[in-house]
């Protein structure tokens, strides 16, 4: 019995080493190219604040009971979390597949879930770092200060996990570098723009409100808006349950793909 738990401990430690090696490698990768990975989101957000906040925002007046600029802060921050978590995993995993150095992992005794966890964690770290940078920029332009740090951070992390998984699945099926930019443009952008980043869904006709409820981003944006502003279109608990459900579903799909070696093993 004790010998058995000793082996389990050693194995657990091995998995931990594998996981942290992967995570370190991922963090090093995006920080070496921070001009391409961290900076763009900060600049884009600044532009949004100048244009939608300062120039146009005053004409829009208030939205959901807040100044328009304040209202869009949560959505903008979350948009950067989403794109960064997603693109980190999709480009890192796709490159490893394209140049075949994913084989370094395939020949190693690391089980698929540890490999997946390593890649996802890399995406989460980048998503959260960029999200926080954007929050700093936002605090400079607005008076927004988090209503609840707990909700704010947990939405950051959960959103990042969900879209890191999405990026992983995209990478598994991608056969060219074009394939990894198509999904962000045709799926990610519509989901985020229609997810209530720039407007409250109460503004929509009833049918489109209903359609919006199928969009996972809506729940994240609203939960996050609650974290920052203390207001939401959706009950908070429901938002978390739905985000968690999406994570479980995409996580299961990713794991299955990796176990079967789809896209990486002949």
């Amino acid at each position: 019995m004790s010998a058995h738990s000793g082996t389990d401990l050693r194995r657990g430690y091995r998995y931990w080493v594998t996981f942290s090696t992967l995570l370190q490698k991922e963090v090093l990768r995006f920080s070496r190219i921070w001009v391409q990975t961290i900076l763009p989101s900060a600049i884009t957000t600044m532009l949004y604040f100048v244009i939608f906040g300062r120039l146009i925002g005053d004409r829009i007046g208030s939205m959901g009971g807040f100044a328009y600029m304040d209202f869009i802060v949560p959505g903008l921050a979350l948009m950067s979390v989403i794109t960064n978590a997603y693109s980190n995993v999709v480009s890192s995993f796709y490159s490893s597949k394209f140049s075949r150095y994913v084989e370094e992992l395939l020949v190693s005794p690391a089980p698929p879930w540890v490999i997946l966890a390593g890649y996802v964690a890399g995406g989460v770290v980048r998503g959260v770092i960029v999200g926080l940078v954007v929050m700093l920029v936002a605090m400079f332009f607005t008076d927004v200060a988090p209503h609840s740090w707990l909700v704010t951070l947990s939405v950051f992390v959960l959103t990042a996990v969900l879209f890191a998984l999405g990026g992983f699945i995209n990478a598994v099926f991608a056969n060219s570098f074009d394939d990894i930019s198509i999904v962000p443009i045709f799926v990610l952008a519509p989901l985020t723009y229609l997810g209530g980043v720039f407007y409250s869904i109460e503004l929509l006709p009833e049918f489109w409100q209903w359609v919006s409820l199928l969009n996972p981003v809506l729940y994240m944006v609203n939960a996050f808006r609650y974290g920052l502003l203390g207001t939401t279109d959706i009950p908070l608990v429901m938002a978390f349950v739905i985000i968690a459900a999406f994570i479980v579903a995409l996580g299961a799909v990713s794991l299955r793909l990796l176990e079967r070696g789809v896209g990486i093993k002949q």
């Binding site: 080493v17 594998t18 190693s108």
Partner: peptide, 23 residues
């Protein structure tokens, strides 16, 4: 089958890490 942008030593160290060998 290499990541062509990594330094030589890192390739070997990472591979050891994937096998669970501490840093």
């Amino acid at each position: 089958n290499f990541n062509l942008f990594l330094p030589v030593a890192e390739v070997v160290i990472n591979q050891a890490g994937y096998f669970g060998i501490p840093r």
